[in-house]
């Protein structure tokens, strides 16, 4: 499923370049230009793909034990390159 999700993300990027609607002045319902409607649809599709991503391809992040979580970055008094 993880692979399918990555294929879908790649598909979104490819489908973003919709050369086929470039000069098409069709108005959906006489109101919304087809080129705009398509890209709004792409926004909805992106949201759905991200939903699949968080469901099936979310990275495994181990919980950080309180003792291991560093409260502050200790800053060395250093002006020399390491």
């Amino acid at each position: 499923m993880r692979r399918v999700v990555w294929i879908l993300i790649a598909a979104l990027i490819v489908l973003h370049h919709d050369f086929w609607w470039w000069t098409d002045g069709t108005l959906l319902g006489g109101a919304i230009p087809i080129g705009l409607a398509y890209h709004m649809g792409l926004s909805v599709a992106a949201s759905l793909v991200w939903l699949l991503t968080v469901r099936f391809a979310w990275p495994q992040i181990a919980a950080i034990p309180a003792a291991e979580s560093r409260p502050e970055k200790p800053v060395a008094h250093s002006t020399t390159p390491r």
């Binding site: 990027i13 926004s43 991503t53 990275p59 560093r70 409260p71």
Partner: peptide, 28 residues
């Protein structure tokens, strides 16, 4: 807009989550 919908979320997912993890572990 539509490009940001794809790419911003990709950045949150690929970069944000990972940096959050490193930031918490190492105190950045």
């Amino acid at each position: 807009a539509s490009s940001s919908g794809i790419v911003h979320s990709l950045c949150f997912f690929l970069i944000g989550v990972k940096l959050w993890d490193l930031g918490r572990r190492h105190g950045y």
